[in-house]
Amino acid sequence: MNMNMNMNKCMSIWIGFYTLLRKEVTRFLRIWSQTLLPPAISVTLYFIIFGHVLGSRVGLMDGYPYLEYIVPGLVMMSIITSAYANVSSSFFSLKFQRSIDEITLSPLPTYAVLLAFVTAGVIRGLLVGSIVTVLALFFTRLNVVHPLFMLLIVVLSAMLFSLAGFLNGLFAKKFDDISIVPTFVLTPLTYLGGVFYSVNLLPDFWHKMSLLNPVLYMVSSFRFSILGVSDINVYVSTLFIIIAVATLFFVNLRLLERGYGIRT
């Protein structure tokens, strides 16, 4: 009897989770020209300008042609910005239209709600990452040295930035609030996170400062998975990402349970 009840409850939660995930994925696919196309265009421009036009003058970076060196960073940049934007804008839109009440009213557990939003962010991140990777193949060759590790880092990084986007969505009170963080925090961190250069080239002080940048750990690990070279210890960076994911997950969960930003 109890086992049946538990099974029914699990099934009910799964249906709720899947419904929300499906809604979120359908949303970003429906507006593909706003969600999938822009990163493809901007990264192609990066490939042309930084890789093709300027790259030949830069020479080798860590023993690799410049374009080949920056591809992992650009792919990772696309993944994390897409994952972040997906969750922050979608969640805030629900709050803005009050359709978040549909979820708050329902018996769907908070962890299932959070997981559905994060999974949708990860799926968009992976989709954008795949598109950008395919585009990169038109400009350079890519031999993935550690494919499983690459998948792990991509998923963990997309999770981390989906969770960060969710936090932004929870705190945001107006649309400006969800563009401030990407513009003034995320973009500078990404550009200074070793996407276009090796942090080992920086003077000691700036090298140490760079180690405080979480994006560096993701870019370096991702580059390691593809090229086999990294600015920092990959075990340290993987551990850093896992701890950050766990911390943000529990912070978001706690805020969601308290109804922060969604209940009065």
Binding site: G16, E102, P107
Partner: peptide
């Protein structure tokens, strides 16, 4: 407001399992 009428109601039912 960007979803269809049926999407809105079916989703809500989905949240209830």
């Amino acid at each position: 407001i960007f979803e269809t009428a049926q999407q809105v109601v079916v989703q809500q039912a989905g949240y209830y399992g």
